[in-house]
Deep mutational scan, measured.
Amino acid sequence: TYTWNTKEEAKQAFKELLKEKRVPSNASWEQAMKMIINDPRYSALAKLSEKKQAFNAYKVQTE
């Protein structure tokens, strides 16, 4: 089980997950979700809006 003390740690864990699963920077949210949804870190960020925000930040960083 994973635990995160801060929102920032949770966001980092979520981005690490995207990186580890090699989600391409041109992937849509739907494509990315299919690649990461079974990992416990997918739940790091509770709100869908937070997940999408972190995903978009990840995409910008990896382009």
Rank of each mutant, 00 (worst) to 15 (best):
residue 19 K to S: 13
residue 50 E to N: 04
residue 20 E to Y: 07
residue 14 F to P: 00
residue 38 N to I: 08
residue 20 E to M: 05
residue 7 K to Y: 11
residue 52 K to D: 03
residue 61 Q to L: 12
residue 21 K to R: 09
residue 35 M to Y: 08
residue 51 K to M: 06
residue 49 S to W: 10
residue 29 W to C: 03
residue 38 N to Y: 11
residue 9 E to C: 07
residue 61 Q to A: 12
residue 37 I to Q: 08
residue 43 S to D: 13
residue 17 L to Q: 01
residue 19 K to C: 14
residue 38 N to F: 10
residue 50 E to K: 03
residue 58 Y to L: 04
residue 7 K to G: 06
residue 19 K to D: 12
residue 23 V to P: 04
residue 46 A to S: 14
residue 19 K to E: 15
residue 63 E to R: 13
residue 18 L to S: 00
residue 29 W to A: 00
residue 7 K to M: 10
residue 56 N to T: 09
residue 1 T to G: 15
residue 53 Q to L: 10
residue 11 K to S: 15
residue 41 R to K: 04
residue 54 A to R: 02
residue 15 K to Q: 14
residue 43 S to Q: 14
residue 57 A to E: 15
residue 12 Q to K: 07
residue 60 V to K: 14
residue 42 Y to V: 02
residue 20 E to V: 05
residue 12 Q to R: 07
residue 12 Q to S: 13
residue 7 K to H: 11
residue 12 Q to Y: 06
residue 22 R to C: 12
residue 26 N to C: 14
residue 48 L to K: 11
residue 36 I to H: 00
residue 47 K to A: 12
residue 63 E to C: 15
residue 13 A to M: 07
residue 54 A to M: 07
residue 9 E to A: 04
residue 40 P to M: 08
residue 42 Y to M: 02
residue 50 E to Y: 06
residue 14 F to W: 03
residue 14 F to L: 02
residue 47 K to R: 08
residue 33 M to N: 08
residue 55 F to Q: 02
residue 13 A to T: 05
residue 25 S to G: 14
residue 55 F to M: 04
residue 57 A to I: 07
residue 19 K to P: 00
residue 42 Y to R: 00
residue 4 W to A: 06
residue 46 A to R: 10
residue 14 F to V: 01
residue 31 Q to K: 06
residue 59 K to I: 14
residue 45 L to Y: 04
residue 2 Y to V: 15
residue 39 D to S: 02
residue 8 E to K: 06
residue 4 W to I: 05
residue 42 Y to S: 02
residue 50 E to C: 06
residue 29 W to H: 01
residue 10 A to D: 03
residue 15 K to M: 15
residue 2 Y to Q: 15
residue 14 F to D: 00
residue 26 N to I: 07
residue 62 T to Y: 12
residue 49 S to R: 10
residue 42 Y to I: 02
residue 49 S to I: 05
residue 52 K to H: 06
residue 53 Q to P: 02
residue 55 F to Y: 06
residue 2 Y to D: 14
residue 31 Q to Y: 10
residue 44 A to W: 03
residue 27 A to G: 05
residue 58 Y to G: 02
residue 60 V to P: 04
residue 7 K to R: 06
residue 11 K to V: 14
residue 32 A to F: 01
residue 17 L to S: 03
residue 20 E to K: 02
residue 32 A to V: 07
residue 3 T to W: 14
residue 63 E to A: 12
residue 49 S to D: 14
residue 52 K to S: 03
residue 50 E to S: 05
residue 21 K to I: 05
residue 39 D to E: 04
residue 37 I to H: 12
residue 1 T to I: 15
residue 23 V to D: 01
residue 41 R to I: 03
residue 39 D to F: 01
residue 32 A to T: 06
residue 40 P to T: 06
residue 57 A to H: 10
residue 6 T to K: 02
residue 58 Y to P: 02
residue 27 A to F: 09
residue 60 V to I: 13
residue 5 N to G: 11
residue 47 K to Y: 07
residue 17 L to D: 00
residue 51 K to Q: 04
residue 45 L to E: 01
residue 14 F to Y: 02
residue 9 E to M: 04
residue 3 T to I: 14
residue 1 T to E: 15
residue 51 K to C: 05
residue 32 A to G: 05
residue 28 S to I: 11
residue 54 A to W: 10
residue 27 A to C: 11
residue 41 R to P: 01
residue 36 I to W: 01
residue 24 P to E: 04
residue 23 V to M: 03
residue 5 N to R: 05
residue 28 S to Y: 04
residue 42 Y to Q: 01
residue 48 L to N: 08
residue 21 K to D: 01
residue 30 E to T: 09
residue 22 R to K: 12
residue 30 E to K: 08
residue 46 A to T: 14
residue 36 I to P: 00
residue 38 N to S: 09
residue 43 S to G: 13
residue 39 D to Q: 00
residue 21 K to L: 07
residue 8 E to N: 06
residue 63 E to H: 12
residue 17 L to R: 00
residue 36 I to T: 05
residue 20 E to T: 06
residue 24 P to H: 04
residue 4 W to T: 06
residue 16 E to T: 09
residue 54 A to C: 12
residue 53 Q to E: 14
residue 24 P to T: 04
residue 39 D to C: 02
residue 37 I to C: 13
residue 19 K to I: 15
residue 53 Q to W: 08
residue 51 K to A: 04
residue 28 S to H: 09
residue 22 R to W: 05
residue 51 K to L: 06
residue 29 W to M: 03
residue 32 A to Y: 02
residue 45 L to T: 01
residue 49 S to N: 06
residue 55 F to G: 01
residue 6 T to Q: 03
residue 31 Q to R: 08
residue 12 Q to E: 14
residue 57 A to W: 12
residue 6 T to E: 06
residue 6 T to C: 08
residue 40 P to F: 13
residue 34 K to S: 10
residue 51 K to P: 03
residue 40 P to H: 09
residue 15 K to A: 14
residue 4 W to E: 14
residue 21 K to M: 11
residue 55 F to A: 03
residue 32 A to L: 02
residue 9 E to T: 04
residue 44 A to E: 03
residue 43 S to W: 11
residue 56 N to C: 14
residue 4 W to C: 15
residue 22 R to Q: 13
residue 1 T to K: 15
residue 42 Y to E: 01
residue 19 K to H: 14
residue 22 R to P: 02
residue 49 S to M: 12
residue 63 E to K: 12
residue 27 A to K: 04
residue 4 W to L: 02
residue 13 A to R: 05
residue 58 Y to N: 04
residue 39 D to V: 00
residue 53 Q to G: 07
residue 11 K to P: 03
residue 52 K to Q: 09
residue 4 W to F: 05
residue 46 A to Y: 09
residue 54 A to S: 08
residue 39 D to N: 01
residue 60 V to C: 15
residue 19 K to Q: 14
residue 62 T to V: 13
residue 51 K to F: 04
residue 53 Q to D: 13
residue 33 M to C: 13
residue 37 I to S: 08
residue 3 T to K: 08
residue 1 T to F: 12
residue 18 L to E: 00
residue 22 R to V: 09
residue 54 A to N: 03
residue 9 E to W: 03
residue 47 K to P: 06
residue 24 P to G: 05
residue 62 T to D: 09
residue 45 L to M: 05
residue 27 A to N: 04
residue 58 Y to M: 04
residue 45 L to S: 01
residue 20 E to A: 07
residue 48 L to G: 05
residue 10 A to C: 09
residue 35 M to R: 06
residue 61 Q to S: 08
residue 52 K to A: 03
residue 33 M to Y: 09
residue 20 E to S: 08
residue 15 K to N: 15
residue 37 I to V: 11
residue 33 M to D: 05
residue 23 V to W: 01
residue 52 K to V: 12
residue 26 N to L: 07
residue 22 R to L: 13
residue 12 Q to N: 10
residue 23 V to R: 01
residue 38 N to K: 10
residue 7 K to E: 14
residue 29 W to N: 00
residue 33 M to H: 08
residue 34 K to W: 09
residue 22 R to I: 06
residue 47 K to D: 13
residue 63 E to N: 11
residue 6 T to S: 06
residue 46 A to M: 08
residue 31 Q to V: 14
residue 35 M to F: 07
residue 60 V to A: 12
residue 15 K to W: 15
residue 44 A to N: 03
residue 51 K to H: 02
residue 39 D to I: 01
residue 7 K to A: 10
residue 26 N to Q: 08
residue 3 T to C: 15
residue 57 A to K: 13
residue 47 K to W: 06
residue 40 P to L: 09
residue 19 K to N: 11
residue 35 M to W: 06
residue 40 P to W: 09
residue 46 A to G: 10
residue 48 L to R: 05
residue 36 I to C: 06
residue 26 N to M: 06
residue 6 T to G: 05
residue 50 E to T: 04
residue 12 Q to I: 08
residue 24 P to C: 06
residue 62 T to W: 08
residue 61 Q to V: 10
residue 30 E to C: 11
residue 54 A to Q: 06
